[in-house]
């Protein structure tokens, strides 16, 4: 599904290489986790894949279902089925959450040549999905993320994911800023979306999220490369010993 080959990336406005050759393949139906110390390039990877400005790809490729992601605008990648759950969801005053989501859903449908969702159908769907994430009607009406708590923002991200039904979901430190209950709620939302046709890439610092969202494959990223890949036990090892052992082993 998502295939990244030899990806090298530097910042556009300074000569600093962040990704130094990343290779990664996420198959449909699988959950891959990326762990790694601060500054290893995890978030950069998520931004480059989703099309944020400010990064320059100097080498390598990234494809989703065989389509070259790097040639596409951010909105085209989204329409293709890529979704990034932001570490820091942005507040947009004056734009209602519902208006925003309906615009997003219908923009994607339009881009794919599908019929747009009617106001009624959209409302029905969002209400049902919001309920399972314990998002009340008031939160749907309020401006996008404005005045939301950390937990509400992350739940809102998962609601967007549920409404957009992407093929490939990237979760960038979705656990940051969440208490235990909120993490459980968010994880349940993610697990409900696990599906044979859908791939996940979960970026996290901590093993605890992976107790809730059980990964099939765990990668360790350091200094712009994936330095080790293994099963769920790799995350437990990190939790127990930190990154020092793995880094030393690779050095």
């Amino acid at each position: 599904m998502l295939e990244i080959k030899g990806l090298k990336v530097q910042l556009e406005d300074e000569d600093k290489q962040i990704l130094k050759g990343v290779d990664l393949k996420v198959e449909a139906g699988k959950v891959h986790a990326i762990m790694g110390p601060n500054g290893s390039g995890k978030s950069t990877l998520s931004y480059v894949l989703s099309g944020k400005d400010g990064y320059e790809v100097t080498e390598g490729s990234a494809t989703l279902s065989g389509e070259d992601l790097l040639e596409l605008e951010a909105e085209e990648r989204a329409a293709l089925g890529l979704f990034l759950a932001f570490q820091y969801p942005v507040e947009i005053p004056g734009v209602g959450n519902m208006t925003f989501l309906r615009t997003a859903v219908n923009s994607q449908r339009k881009a794919r040549g599908e019929e747009e969702l009617s106001a009624k159908d959209f409302l029905q769907e969002i209400r049902a999905k919001a309920k399972t994430l314990k998002i009340d009607a008031d939160m749907l009406k309020r401006p996008v993320n404005v005045g939301f708590s950390g937990g509400e923002k992350k739940r809102n991200e998962i609601l967007q994911m549920a409404m957009l039904e992407p093929k490939m979901c990237i979760l960038d430190e979705t656990d940051s800023g969440l208490d235990v209950d909120a993490m459980k709620l968010v994880s349940e939302g993610v697990n409900a979306l696990r599906d044979e046709g859908r791939g996940f890439l979960v970026i996290t610092h901590y093993q605890r999220l992976l107790d809730h969202i059980k990964p099939d494959v765990v990668h360790i990223m350091a200094d712009g490369r994936i330095i080790k890949t293994g099963g769920p036990e790799l995350a437990l090892e990190v939790e127990k010993n930190g990154y020092a052992d793995i880094l030393a082993e690779m050095a």
């Binding site: 944020k52 951010a74 909105e75």
Partner: peptide, 8 residues
């Protein structure tokens, strides 16, 4: 970017 990443 947030809006565009959602397909807008």
């Amino acid at each position: 970017f947030y809006l565009r990443a959602r397909g807008v």
